[in-house]
């Protein structure tokens, strides 16, 4: 598996996209730090970039990578290697290279501007989102044999989690605003990794007061030891379930 991981990493790096992504994140971070001297505000702006760009890049890159390495997978399948380790080494290769570019892309400029501690929660959330959307990308790829269709499914996932879900959530809150909605919104936000990431971030920045009563309620829950554990566990779950589902399908698919 580690041997295969080496070849997957070589393959990913040869595409140079990951390098481009890293440079892009570096540029954005540097520009934002130069525009504003308050690290807290920079992190807020960066958060919006991370919440949109990281999922999109992760899921689309994964889907394209999967179909581009189809030949490689085909070649491995004729060798005494089991499908599970082929799949997991693909996942590890893609996820680790994207995580590393994000870490360097945000971490390095932040370090240069002396704001490493402030961006730490942001990087944490970004790494989680990367792993989650790489999982979802593999899930999209395993659902169909057609590259264009898989990219379509991947984009749909992205739209759903970043836009459509929030729309539904707002509608629910609006429609049922006569009722106490704290617990239902808490549950509903946990069901979307992007929302969960946003809340984890906002609470770490101590600006939850801006969110009113619900914010206070969220702070009460997510700020507690159990809440932190809960949010981490939920994020972990979001990494695992699409990955396991994709693995199950990959084991059964005909090549």
């Amino acid at each position: 598996m580690t041997r295969m991981l080496k070849y997957v990493l070589q393959d990913v790096l040869r595409a140079r996209f990951v390098l481009f992504y890293m440079v892009f994140m570096m540029a954005v971070t540097t520009i934002l730090f130069q525009l504003d001297s308050d690290p807290a505000k920079v992190v807020m702006s960066l958060l919006n970039v991370v919440l949109l760009v990281v999922p999109l890049v992760s899921i689309v890159f994964t889907t394209i990578h999967y179909f581009n390495s189809y030949e490689f997978i085909l070649l491995l399948m004729a060798q005494p290697i089991n499908r599970k380790s082929v799949f997991l080494s693909q996942y590890a290769g893609v996820a680790s290279s994207l995580c590393l570019s994000l870490l360097i892309g945000i971490g390095l400029p932040a370090l240069a501007f002396g704001a490493a501690t402030q961006v730490l929660p942001l990087i944490n959330v970004g790494l989680f989102l990367t792993c989650i959307f790489v999982s979802l990308g593999f899930l999209a790829s395993s659902l169909t044999r057609d590259k264009a269709k898989a990219i379509g499914i991947a984009l749909l996932f992205w739209f759903y989690f970043t836009l459509i879900y929030d729309g539904i959530l707002l509608w629910v809150i609006y429609a049922f605003n006569d009722y106490p909605l704290e617990t239902p919104t808490l549950i509903l936000t946990s069901l979307n990794p992007v929302d969960l990431a946003r809340i984890m971030m906002l609470l770490s920045m101590d600006i939850s007061a801006l969110m009113g009563y619900t914010g206070a309620f969220f702070k009460d829950f997510f700020g507690s030891g159990f809440g932190i554990l809960f949010s981490f566990a939920m994020m972990g779950l979001w990494v695992m379930w699409p990955l396991l589902l994709a693995l199950r399908r990959f084991k059964k698919n005909d090549l």
Binding site: D11, Y70, E71, F72, L74, L75, P80, I81
Partner: peptide, 20 residues
């Protein structure tokens, strides 16, 4: 199973290889 493939040499009809 997968270890049994140690004994097999396979030449596909159309050889597809990583392009780069």
């Amino acid at each position: 199973q997968y270890l049994y493939r140690k004994q097999i040499g396979y030449m596909p009809q159309i050889g597809q290889y990583p392009a780069n």
